[in-house]
Write a protein that binds this DNA or RNA. Structure first.
Length: 573
DNA sequence: GCCGTTTTCGGCCCGACTGTTTTCAGTCG
């Protein structure tokens, strides 16, 4: 059973307990456990065998026992019992915006509604507004919520949400009186997908900002609107929250709005221990006097710690590390000296070797590895052995043109079904670096897929394993892999694991980056550019690395050319 | 439900907006 499955069951239990009106704390405990397991960098199965479940934040003895039951029997008695008591459609109703556990329970108990479809019928027939403390408006909201739910297409990839947020912020920044404007929420934490956009503006007056926000061309509908907070839905169906704050409260507001929820809860608990109450407005002493925090760092400083980079704010140990003053110096885009995966017209890229080289140079890189596909990737027009000489000539020509950029000869070689590679070792040895990946047979089972990758990791000519899980965000789950075995092997062999910066991939996913960093695995942040513009995606790859606590030292393409090549040569090239 | 050099019991973050209400519950983040 995979972590996501355990997380889903716990989350369902939380929903069902909430519908039953049970203690909110108990509900929260299950929600927290679900979150924690969903973000776990280790296999929960392995953790169980090692007897380390209670080391997972939010997992105590009771929940650890439940996880064991789930993994041994494939079922959880509490879950089964709740499922027998509450119709599944009632739990589904929680997906409807503005329907929470109380409303769902009342619909079920008082109207006999047991599905979203029945809820819609009840609303259309006016039965909901007849209930006490319900009204026509609430009923209309529920109907609207059902429509939104049916249109909703899930979470938005970071690479798309990022540009949408910046387009809106660009306009808001020009409103007179605006001092600062920034993204917050999961977007600022650079999660691989975001559920909605959170924007924060500091301004002398809120009204003009809100007025401008309402009139943005992206707005399809204003969902709610108050003096300091407005929620809209864009034409693409993305929800955007805007909060406007006084200039002097920027620090607390940005901290609050960035989250994560778990990070904030922990931080506010800490504030309480220090005799403060922390909100988005200020740190408040017990006598009611406020300490304003114009900058985010002020908030952390008052609580006795250093500023925590947003990418780390998931309550995964960053607060403890910040209190000790031991946060890592995370890798930054400016640390990258090269890119180790790029495609050209020799396979499925849009530009020539020369054009890619120029684009890399103009983005401040000192080296770029040309990695066209090998022939096994037939759909991408992969290279045959005979093509390599011609490509090498182009690479040599590009090198002759620059004194400040090295164009390296590489390949993205296909890992075949049996774990062997498309090219013999003799060919691979002639290249500067070899990147290996699999594009087919991702669904052939955990054991087989893991073995294929392990074989490639152990090949001394292979320097980098590209997009290891093969996931395509929002389209395809990653392969079922024994990631722990893969990372252990990579650590032992010195093979680098790629963090593919393509916004659809961001693969290795952040939770495994964290584990890779713990194990001392070498990482490579690569654009996988098929077009010169794709080189800009490196930024998202860096963000993913940062979310996994990676420092420049972990990332081979922050190293200068000499050191990077000497590592590659030590691998057998 | 979890968690702890204040505690093994008694805490567990804080506020905006909405709707149906004359003071607050529900939802959301």
């Amino acid at each position: 059973m995979r972590n996501q499955e355990v997380a889903r069951i716990f989350s369902e239990i939380a929903d069902m307990l909430a519908i039953q009106g049970q203690d909110q704390r108990r509900v929260l405990a299950y929600e927290r456990a679900a979150d924690s397991i969903g973000q776990l960098e280790r296999d929960v199965v392995d953790m169980t065998h090692e007897g380390k479940l209670t080391q997972i934040p939010g997992i105590g003895v009771t929940l650890a026992t439940k996880i064991e039951e789930l993994l041994t029997t494939g079922k959880l008695s509490l879950h089964e019992r709740l499922k027998a008591e509450i119709p599944p459609g009632v739990v589904e109703m929680l997906q409807v915006p503005d329907v929470g556990p109380r409303t769902a329970a009342r619909m079920w108990k008082e109207l006999g509604v047991t599905s979203v479809d029945e809820l819609e019928k009840a609303a259309q027939s006016g039965r909901i507004q007849e209930l006490s403390r319900m009204g026509a408006r609430k009923e209309a909201r529920i109907l609207e919520g059902i429509q939104i739910l049916r249109r909703r297409s899930g979470r938005t990839p970071l690479g798309i949400a990022w540009y949408q947020a910046y387009d809106m912020l660009e306009v808001l920044r020009r409103v007179p009186g605006v001092r600062q404007a920034a993204p917050a929420g999961s977007l600022r934490r650079m999660r691989d997908t975001v559920g909605d956009l959170d924007l924060l503006v500091a301004a002398e007056e809120a009204e003009p900002v809100m007025a401008c926000f309402h009139q943005l061309p992206q707005v399809a509908e204003v969902v709610q609107s108050g003096p300091t907070k407005t929620t809209i839905r864009t034409r693409q169906g993305l929800q955007v929250d805007l909060r406007v704050m006084e200039v002097g409260r920027w620090g607390t507001a940005l901290q609050y709005l960035t989250g994560s929820q778990a990070h904030n809860v922990h931080l506010r608990g800490l504030a309480k221990d220090c005799g403060y109450s922390l909100s988005e407005y200020a740190l408040k002493r017990e006598d009611g006097t406020e300490i304003l925090c114009p900058e985010e760092a002020d908030v952390y400083r008052h609580l006795g710690m250093v500023w925590v980079p947003p990418e780390l704010r998931e309550d995964r140990g960053e607060i403890e590390a910040a209190l000790r003053g031991e946060l890592p110096r995370l890798v930054e885009r400016a640390d990258l000296k090269g890119d180790l995966q790029s495609h050209t017209t020799w396979s499925d890229g849009n530009q020539s070797v020369g054009e890619m080289a120029e684009a890399a140079r103009s983005r401040g890189l000192c080296y770029i590895l040309i990695t066209d596909h090998s022939y096994g990737m037939g759909i991408a027009g992969g290279l045959r052995e005979a093509d390599l000489a011609g490509q090498r000539a182009e690479i040599a020509a590009a090198n002759a043109r620059y004194h400040d950029l090295a164009v390296l000869a590489g390949i993205e070689v296909e890992i075949r079904a049996d774990g062997t590679l498309d090219f013999p070792d003799s060919v691979l040895a002639s290249l500067d670096l070899v990147v290996a990946s699999l594009h087919t047979g991702l669904r052939t089972g955990r054991e087989r897929t893991t073995q294929r990758i392990l074989a490639a990791i152990r090949n001394p000519h292979v320097d980098v394993i590209a997009h290891p899980t093969g996931r395509l965000i929002g389209q395809r789950e990653g392969a079922d892999l024994d990631m722990e075995a893969i990372l252990q092997a990579a650590a032992q062999e010195g093979t680098a694991i790629e963090i593919n910066a393509y916004p659809d991939r961001l693969d290795l996913p952040d939770v495994y980056v964290r584990r890779a960093v713990e194990l001392g695995v070498k990482l490579a942040i690569n654009s996988d550019a098929h077009d010169v513009r794709d080189l800009d995606h490196l930024f998202f790859g860096v963000a993913t690395a940062r979310r996994g606590w990676a420092t420049p030292e972990h990332v081979v393409n922050t190293w200068d050319l000499e050191r990077m090549l000497s590592w590659a040569r030590s691998r057998g090239n």
